[in-house]
């Protein structure tokens, strides 16, 4: 009983914080909106919440902070169109080269990878159980075929959902948040040759963090070394 009341009170408090952030945004106090939204997100992450935080940061004059939070929103829900549109405009305005569209974005723009994984695995299991029961049935050929197809379709959907999940990819997504951007170097040494320079707000994949230096991968397949201090992990709480 007590636990129920506590949960109820926490829920009301969260709603109040969300309202507070929205109200601050509506009256143009973007810093207060960002602060209230951060408190809400610390309690319960959501793609919409990160989008709102990005919006508040963008309007407060912090484009890189906005890009970071739009990226976070898209990591949680790749189908959030508002975040994708806002990110592409802001990144272009920052001079961040647009990454080529990937099949992953095509899939996750239509259906959330977790939903695909859940529905796919459920369908595969339903098919497997159906196959078992169909083998006992008098109309076994038709039912077994149907069940077999369900297993195949479900497995394919679950595999697609798994592969489309960016958080399961081999690299850790990170953002260049240093104001001056970063130079991607050919080796982890300050005096090594620069492969290219990337502006603040560029998303990189950290292949291998090595203390002060991180071995990173750009969308185009270029790999090199970047000082870790210039990067911020897109997944909050992750360390590089």
């Amino acid at each position: 009983m007590k636990a129920g009341i506590v949960i109820l009170l926490m829920g009301f408090a969260a709603l109040a914080r969300a309202d507070e952030a929205g109200a601050a945004f509506a009256r143009g106090d973007f810093s207060a909106a960002a602060k209230a939204q951060e408190a809400e997100l610390a309690r319960q992450p959501s793609a919409e919440g990160y989008f709102n935080l990005g919006l508040a940061r963008q309007n407060a004059g912090d484009p890189v902070g906005a890009i970071l939070n739009y990226e976070r929103a898209l990591l949680l829900d790749p189908g959030l169109r508002d975040a994708r549109n806002a990110l592409s405009k802001l990144a272009a305005a920052q001079g961040v080269p647009a990454a080529p569209r990937t099949w992953r974005e095509d899939v996750t723009g239509v259906v959330h990878p977790e939903l695909l994984l859940t529905l796919g695995s459920t369908l595969a299991w339903v098919g497997a159980f159906g196959f078992l029961f169909a083998s006992q049935s008098s109309r076994r050929i038709g039912l077994m075929t149907l069940a077999g197809l369900a297993v195949l379709a479900g497995s394919a959907a679950a595999t697609a959902g798994w592969l489309a999940e960016a958080r399961l990819a081999g690299v850790r997504p990170a953002l260049v948040t240093a104001k001056e951007g970063a130079e991607v170097l050919s080796s982890p040494a300050n005096n090594s040759s620069a492969i290219l320079s990337v502006p603040a707000g560029t998303t990189l994949g950290v292949v291998s963090p090595r203390g002060a230096w991180s071995y990173v991968d750009l969308n185009g397949g270029v790999r090199g070394w970047v000082p870790t201090e210039r990067l911020t992990p897109i997944i909050p709480g992750e360390t590089l």
Binding site: Q44, A47, E48, G49, L76
Partner: peptide
């Protein structure tokens, strides 16, 4: 751009983990 009211709770841990 608009402030999004409804929020679906998500976890940073992907479902497969």
């Amino acid at each position: 751009s608009r402030w999004l009211e409804a929020a679906t709770p998500r976890s940073w841990e992907p479902l497969a983990r």
